[in-house]
C-alpha cells in the first residue's frame, strides 16, 4: 500500500512539474513591443505582392484588408486614394519597396506603418471547393524602415462541410457550393486571423489596455476553417 501511495505521489509531482515547465503563450506586450512603445495609428496598406498564378487573389485581399485593421482601431489610408497617389508618384509596384527606405511614404502619407502583404499560395484542390492559402503580413516602421512584426498564415478553407446521409447529395451540394463560393469573405477571414491578436489601436475602446492578453498565434501558424 505504501508503495502505491509513493508511486502516486511521484506521478502527481511529475505532472505538476511538467505543467510548471510548459511555457505560457507570450503576452501582446511582449510580442508587439513596438506597438506599445510607439503607438502607431495610421497604416498604409500596400497592394499585395501576388506570388500565385491566381490573378484575382490580389484584388480579393486588397479589398478586404482595411476592414479588419480598422476594426482593431487603426486608421488605414483609404485604398483608392492610396492607389491614386502611389501611381502619381510612380510607386505602384510593391515589390520595389519591400527592402527600400520608406521615408517617402512618411512624406506623402504621414503614415506610421506600412503593411506589405504577400500572397504565397492560392491553390484549389479537387472539385469540392477546398483552397489552400498562404498569406504573410510584414509591418514596417515608416521612419526607421525596421520590420516591427511579421506573421505567416497557412489556411485551409473548405467550402461546405455540411454532412448528409447520402454520399451523392453530399458530393453534389459540395460541388455546387464550390462553384458559387464568394472569395471576398474567405479572404477577409484569412486577414482577420492574421491580425486577430494585434494590439488595439487608438480608435478602439480597449486601446492601451490589452498588453497582458495572450497572443493567439505565433509568427507562423496553420488554420482550417
Amino acid at each position: 500500500m505504501r508503495h502505491i501511495k509513493f508511486i502516486f505521489t511521484l506521478m502527481a509531482s511529475a505532472i505538476l512539474l511538467a505543467s510548471c515547465n510548459m511555457q505560457k503563450p507570450a503576452t501582446r506586450g511582449e510580442t508587439f513591443e513596438h506597438f506599445y512603445a510607439e503607438k502607431p495609428l495610421s497604416i498604409l496598406v500596400m497592394p499585395p505582392v501576388n506570388q500565385t498564378t491566381n490573378v484575382e487573389a490580389k484584388e480579393y485581399f486588397y479589398a478586404t484588408m482595411h476592414r479588419p485593421l480598422a476594426n482593431k482601431g487603426y486608421y488605414t489610408i483609404p485604398p483608392f486614394i492610396a492607389a491614386e497617389i502611389l501611381q502619381m508618384e510612380g510607386a505602384y509596384d510593391t515589390e520595389i519597396f519591400m527592402e527600400q527606405s520608406l521615408e517617402a511614404f512618411g512624406t506623402v502619407f504621414q503614415a506610421d506603418l506600412v503593411l506589405f502583404p504577400i500572397i504565397h499560395k492560392w491553390k484549389k484542390i479537387g472539385a469540392l471547393g477546398e483552397i489552400l492559402i498562404d498569406l504573410q503580413f510584414i509591418f514596417r516602421d515608416v521612419n526607421t524602415g525596421e520590420t516591427v512584426f511579421s506573421r505567416y498564415g497557412e489556411f485551409r478553407y473548405q467550402a461546405n462541410t455540411a454532412q448528409s446521409g447520402n454520399i451523392f447529395v453530399w458530393l453534389f451540394s459540395n460541388v455546387v457550393s464550390a462553384a458559387i463560393t464568394d472569395y471576398v469573405p474567405v479572404s477577409r477571414q484569412c486577414v482577420e486571423y492574421l491580425v486577430s491578436d494585434l494590439p488595439y489601436g487608438k480608435y478602439h475602446l480597449e486601446f492601451a489596455k490589452d498588453a497582458n492578453l495572450r497572443v493567439l498565434y505565433g509568427e507562423q501558424f496553420r488554420m482550417n476553417f
Binding site: E56, Y62, R67, V184
Partner: peptide
C-alpha cells in the same frame, strides 16, 4: 454593436478594383 457599420463595402471595393 460592431465598431463600424460596413454594409457591402468589401464586395463593392473588390468589384470596382476588378
Amino acid at each position: 454593436k460592431p465598431m463600424y457599420y460596413w454594409g457591402k463595402y468589401d464586395d463593392a471595393v473588390y468589384s470596382h478594383q476588378k
